[in-house]
């Protein structure tokens, strides 16, 4: 039962970063990622500076380095591909530890790894200093299509309900002597997934009835509006603007 206010990605705190309005942080994180990916990969020192910037924000937000690094593990499956690049790419080759590696492949791998890690780090920082609910309000404020915000909001509300249903179905299966072992049991698991889909679909219908009964006519009423002052925007802009300066230097030096 983790979602909602006490989600495991969120780390409760009262730092200046926590206090910034969610839409400022969203915009800042997004701008930062854009700047990072548009930096030339040869400017290795620039990525070092970006890492220092991220570490600085983490320090202000009082997010311990260990916490941040553990969350970064999420990117491992995605960067596995980058590790392959020096072996499979074409072109000029160089010998490293007795292996013949492609130079352009090495640069490509570095590019994916550095930019990916910085992007994930910025997202982890955003998630650990902003409650899920606030993120949705921020997205709404940034004029993300309302339908997408509604879908995300229902995911948060019903994620646990559906997980709980799945758990009960699993208990019911095991109580009748079923343990999933090997391929022959995949059929049962597939049927469970199907049953869960139908149950959720029917719940969706019932939820819709309940919404219509309370006056829903296609759009969610705005109950909480998040606002930001110029000062708050200025604080949020520090990270992407500094990063932009680094990026410009990367292109000119």
């Amino acid at each position: 039962m983790g979602a909602g206010h006490a989600h495991k990605l969120y780390r409760h705190g009262h730092s200046p970063v926590h206090r910034l309005p969610p839409h400022c942080k969203l915009a800042a994180a997004f701008a930062f990622v854009l700047v990072v990916v548009s930096t030339p990969r040869e400017a290795v020192w620039a990525f070092g500076l970006y890492a220092v910037l991220v570490a600085g924000v983490a320090a202000v937000a009082r997010i311990p380095a260990g916490f941040l690094l553990r969350r970064l593990v999420i990117e491992v499956p995605f960067v596995a591909f980058a590790v392959l690049m020096p072996f499979v790419a074409q072109g000029e080759r160089v010998d490293v530890l007795g292996m013949s590696l492609s130079v352009s492949g090495l640069w490509g791998a570095w590019n994916v790894l550095a930019k990916g890690t910085l992007g994930v780090a910025a997202s982890v920082l955003l998630a650990s200093t902003t409650e899920l609910r606030a993120l949705l309000l921020g997205l709404q404020r940034l004029k993300l299509p309302p339908m997408l915000v509604q879908i995300a909001s229902f995911m948060i509300r019903y994620g646990d309900v559906v997980t709980d249903e799945l758990r009960r179905m699993s208990i019911a299966r095991r109580s009748r002597g079923f343990e999933a072992r090997g391929v022959r049991h995949w059929g049962v698991l597939a049927k469970t997934a199907g049953a869960l889909f139908i149950r959720s679909y029917e719940r969706g219908e019932r939820v819709y009835l309940a919404m219509v009964s309370r006056g829903y006519a296609g759009s969610m009423p705005v109950i909480d509006e998040v606002t930001a002052t110029r000062t708050q925007w200025a604080y949020a802009a520090v990270l992407p603007v500094t990063a932009l300066a680094v990026c410009l230097m990367g292109w000119t030096l």
């Binding site: 909602g4 206010h5 509300r157 719940r203 939820v207 009835l209 919404m211 006056g215 109950i223």
Partner: peptide
């Protein structure tokens, strides 16, 4: 089923839904 009736992320927003829609 109250899980069908309560579809907003917090109790306050859920209770506010009807009047806000009005």
């Amino acid at each position: 089923d109250p899980d069908d009736q309560l579809f907003m992320p917090t109790v306050r927003e859920d209770v506010a839904f009807g009047p806000a829609a009005a």
